[in-house]
Design a protein around this nucleic acid. Sequence first.
DNA 1: CATTTTTATATTGTGCACAATTAAATTGTG
DNA 2: CACAATTTAATTGTGCACAATATAAAAATG
Lengths: 153, 153
Amino acid sequence: MTGSDGSIKLDSMLCFAVYAAGHAFTRFYKPRLEALDLTYPQYLVFIVLWEQDDITVKALGDRLFLDSGTITPLIKRLEARGLVTRRRDEDDERQVRIRLTPEGRALREKAMAIPLQVAEGTGMTLESVERLRKELLDLRDQLDGGSRAKVPD
Amino acid sequence: MTGSDGSIKLDSMLCFAVYAAGHAFTRFYKPRLEALDLTYPQYLVFIVLWEQDDITVKALGDRLFLDSGTITPLIKRLEARGLVTRRRDEDDERQVRIRLTPEGRALREKAMAIPLQVAEGTGMTLESVERLRKELLDLRDQLDGGSRAKVPD
DNA sequence: CATTTTTATATTGTGCACAATTAAATTGTG
DNA sequence: CACAATTTAATTGTGCACAATATAAAAATG
């Protein structure tokens, strides 16, 4: 992270490598998501909804590590396009449940081609992808779990 | 990336691991950058400027993989706070050169403590940090270099 | 050397991302 | 049960991130 003189070196910083790789992924996805007319974060929301329909804003946020300030407007844009519906839970009116419309469900077919393109785009083997993914998962847990994980209060 | 039924699984996607780790880093840096009153992207700009002062907007963008649409307003905010100056290059008036003010240069002292905190925050050895960093660098190059690197036009 | 082409920066508009705040519903507690 | 504390979403405001476009300067071309 620092040179021998104590200076901070961009090229040796892990955070910058993560930051730049993230942008590269977004750029890579952009043309592939144009057929679906989705942004990358919107695509992630659909992946969650295709896995589990009828989910609350809270659960969606927990899954994607995003809060309502990000999710609410994103979902409203999808709702305006008729891809999802938003409805208050009848038993707990604090919660808003997100559901796929038939149109939103149908997007899944168009999306099926993308994972292969991404796999090819990374130029990595399935094994090295899996290893890297796991390392990043541990890193994330370390960074926002911190010491709490080891010493619970 | 996909399950045996062809479904897309968030938990097996490398892109999401990168995305989530990036947000975790930003969250991790936030309280540490409060003493400098800088955002994470602003901090990256200063790291470049501390390495090489008197740099053009273009060169800064190349270094951080950002375009003028991102950098120009960011720099203007730093200029408004008296941390940097912007001036057209005399020999090539298309270019704008960014320079540190004494105040901007002084921030470096306050920043020196951060790298160690981050190193501790990751909970990783220097070797594994370096290995992961390099893998992400290759991934980034693959993703936005693509096949062009091998077959130039 | 006039004209095209390229390069560098700025601007506008859209969409995240998140802190801080607000509002409403639910849960916990005396 | 009353009332405090917690939970869930939405809202407001700030700051990236980037596509598309505009503008001006410099370089390339015939």
